[in-house]
Design a protein around this nucleic acid. Sequence first.
RNA 1: GGGAAGAUACCGAAGCGGUCAAACGGGGCAGACUGUAAAUCUGUUGGCUCAGCCUUCGUAGGUUCGAAUCCUGCUCUUCCCA
Length: 430
Amino acid sequence: MNFVEELKWRGMLHDIMPGTEEQLQKEVTPAYVGIDPTADSLHIGHLVSVMMLKHLQIAGHQPIALIGGATGMIGDPSGKSQERNLLDEPTLRHNQECIKNQLSKFLDFDSEEANVALLVNNYDWMKEFSFLEFIRDVGKRITVNYMMAKDSVKKRLGEESKSGMSFTEFTYQLVQGYDFLHLYQNNNCKLQMGGSDQWGNITTGTELIRRVAGGEAFAMTCPLITKADGTKFGKTESGNVWLDPERTSPYSFFQFWLNTSDEDAERYIKIFTLLSKEEIDALVAGHKEAPHMRSLQKKLAEEVTIMVHSKEEYEMAVEASQILFGKGTAEQLRKLNESTFLAVFEGVPQFTISKTELAEGINVIDLLAEKTEVFPSKGELRRTIKGNGLSINKEKIGDPDLIVNNDYLIADKYILAQKGKKNYFLIIAE
RNA sequence: GGGAAGAUACCGAAGCGGUCAAACGGGGCAGACUGUAAAUCUGUUGGCUCAGCCUUCGUAGGUUCGAAUCCUGCUCUUCCCA
């Protein structure tokens, strides 16, 4: 199966320029996607582009990840209703390093083969480019009429846009287009890929290559990832889902994929894992038989967590999930060693309390509503207890007069309070 | 500039002198069910030293034994006429 066919059955192909497939069959083709270095970590929204590069490398072509240092300083108007904040250079370099680190989990940057992955930063060639040179060498080749015809521009000039569009943003597509030209001339790069919202920007590049270099270059986009319920993909209540374990713990990362809805799971597993068509077909069939087993979600979460983090992190996440959602019991909880315990409850709101005070025994209500802010008011806590909604160390508390003392400590240090099923709070005795 | 209506808890919206911490709907939270889902059902949704008490109905005063409810000033909102 060739690269294009591969993307096609995975549902990762939205639009493709005629001739692209032929080009890929002809020779080892370098192709790039752009990545905005707005943060020092990728998030799962970037993952689709990364997977495209990965498939590209597997198919024997050369993946190029372009860090949009220069373009990130401008801001892509596509899909944005407002101007973007600009990044300074030190931040940019830092972000670039972190991103490269993450990419190396997916792409082979050290191969001896011709299809070794490359990482470039367009800031490196844009920073020396003077304005005069740019408008003479690049700007001269593209008409404003052409640029105005792009959807991303039209939208910003249209009536629904309140803020207007700066000249800086207007030139964005030229700068991105020039990247393509630069890579075409220096790396023989003939293909640019990206999300379907990038089509306009990409074709500016192919147009530029045709007019400046007389060459032929190609474009390919993948559909934007959507969710069946219409909410935005890749977001949780707590924000973006990052690849960086410091920003999103492997446990939360795992949970994100596990909680994928049935409607979305099939699409996602094709896009975000490297499982073969046969394997996925079997999983989908199995899932239809027994949807409550959620075999699709489990496999999806497993594959992606291992790929982004590691097998160990995955196993830890499964273990944590069992304690939190499975038949986790008080004994199981007490059996955990401290480091696992902390990993399981990493990211859970924490409160501290003095150990000596606890030794004397504290009433549950005082402990959770006064000494700590697990509950905002005592009344609410009382209601929760009445409604059978409070657990301490995985055991239901029904008595509002309960006295908590050192006997409740896990690993001689922690008390786990639980509001309802899903809300955990960690109290640390010091 | 003139006139009218209105401002109630997270949101919408009842209440028009005592029985009002305030109907009802939405949302939130919790319980049951379940697949860590959806739907459904149940409870709860100002605070506290919790069968009681305290602070809330735009804001500041007033009338009254008693005010979300009546009166006055102020602020804001909406509508109509200039």
